[in-house]
Deep mutational scan, measured.
Amino acid sequence: RELEAFAERFKQRRIKLGVTQADVGSALANLKIPGVGSLSQSTICRFESLTLSHNNMIALKPILQAWLEEAEGAQREKMNKP
């Protein structure tokens, strides 16, 4: 249940930020998480549509959570600048 809720929230917030699935995939490489490079657009799509295996969903959740927090933080900074 929690994974499904996160996937839905992730998709809504990604769209609100105006970021494509492909952008998310390539931006993950910038997070410098050990062992994590970029991901394909189709992987992000399959995460959002819950068609990845349960284990893959569990593995990707903290990575996508980290990206989302960073992206939303950058958005807030941009909006707070005069």
Rank of each mutant, 00 (worst) to 15 (best):
R1V: 08
R1Y: 08
R1E: 12
R1L: 08
E2H: 05
E2R: 04
E2D: 13
E2N: 13
E2S: 06
E2I: 04
E2V: 03
L3H: 05
L3W: 03
L3C: 00
E4S: 08
E4A: 08
A5T: 08
A5F: 14
A5N: 15
A5I: 15
F6R: 00
F6E: 03
F6I: 03
F6P: 00
A7E: 00
E8M: 08
E8K: 06
R9S: 14
R9Q: 09
F10K: 00
F10L: 02
F10V: 01
F10T: 01
F10Q: 00
K11W: 01
K11F: 01
Q12W: 03
Q12V: 07
R13H: 07
R13L: 06
R13F: 05
R13K: 09
R13E: 08
I15P: 00
I15A: 07
K16W: 05
K16Y: 07
K16D: 13
K16A: 15
G18C: 02
G18S: 04
V19A: 13
V19H: 06
T20M: 02
Q21C: 08
A22E: 14
A22I: 05
A22M: 04
V24W: 01
G25W: 12
G25K: 13
S26C: 10
S26M: 09
A27E: 10
A27K: 09
A27P: 00
A29L: 08
L31E: 11
L31A: 09
K32M: 13
K32A: 12
K32R: 09
K32F: 14
I33S: 04
I33F: 08
I33W: 07
P34T: 11
P34F: 07
P34V: 06
P34E: 13
P34Q: 10
G35M: 05
G35D: 06
G35W: 03
V36A: 09
V36G: 06
G37A: 09
G37E: 13
G37P: 11
G37N: 14
G37D: 08
S38T: 10
S38W: 07
L39N: 04
L39C: 07
L39I: 14
L39W: 05
S40I: 05
Q41G: 12
Q41P: 15
S42F: 05
S42D: 14
T43D: 08
T43C: 07
C45K: 14
C45S: 15
C45H: 15
R46L: 05
F47T: 01
F47M: 02
F47E: 01
F47C: 00
E48Q: 00
E48H: 00
E48A: 00
S49G: 12
S49N: 15
L50G: 14
L50C: 15
T51N: 10
T51P: 00
T51S: 13
T51V: 07
T51M: 12
L52E: 06
L52R: 00
L52I: 02
L52Q: 02
L52D: 05
L52A: 03
S53H: 15
S53C: 12
S53L: 02
H54Y: 14
N55G: 14
N56R: 09
N56E: 14
M57D: 00
I58T: 14
I58M: 10
I58A: 14
A59D: 09
A59N: 04
A59M: 13
A59K: 14
A59P: 03
A59H: 15
L60V: 10
L60M: 05
L60T: 02
L60A: 03
K61L: 05
P62T: 05
P62F: 02
P62G: 05
P62N: 04
I63V: 12
I63C: 10
I63D: 03
I63Q: 04
I63N: 05
L64K: 01
L64I: 03
L64D: 01
Q65G: 08
Q65N: 08
Q65V: 06
A66S: 12
A66H: 12
W67K: 02
W67T: 01
L68T: 02
L68F: 02
L68Q: 02
E69D: 13
E69W: 05
E69R: 07
E69N: 11
E69C: 05
E70P: 01
A71M: 12
A71L: 05
A71P: 02
A71Y: 03
E72H: 02
E72L: 03
G73Q: 14
G73K: 09
G73T: 15
G73L: 14
G73R: 09
A74C: 13
A74E: 13
Q75W: 08
Q75G: 09
Q75F: 09
Q75T: 10
Q75L: 12
R76T: 12
R76S: 13
R76A: 13
R76H: 12
E77K: 11
E77D: 12
K78G: 10
M79S: 10
M79K: 14
M79H: 09
N80E: 15
N80H: 13
N80T: 12
K81T: 13
K81L: 14
P82Q: 13
P82Y: 15
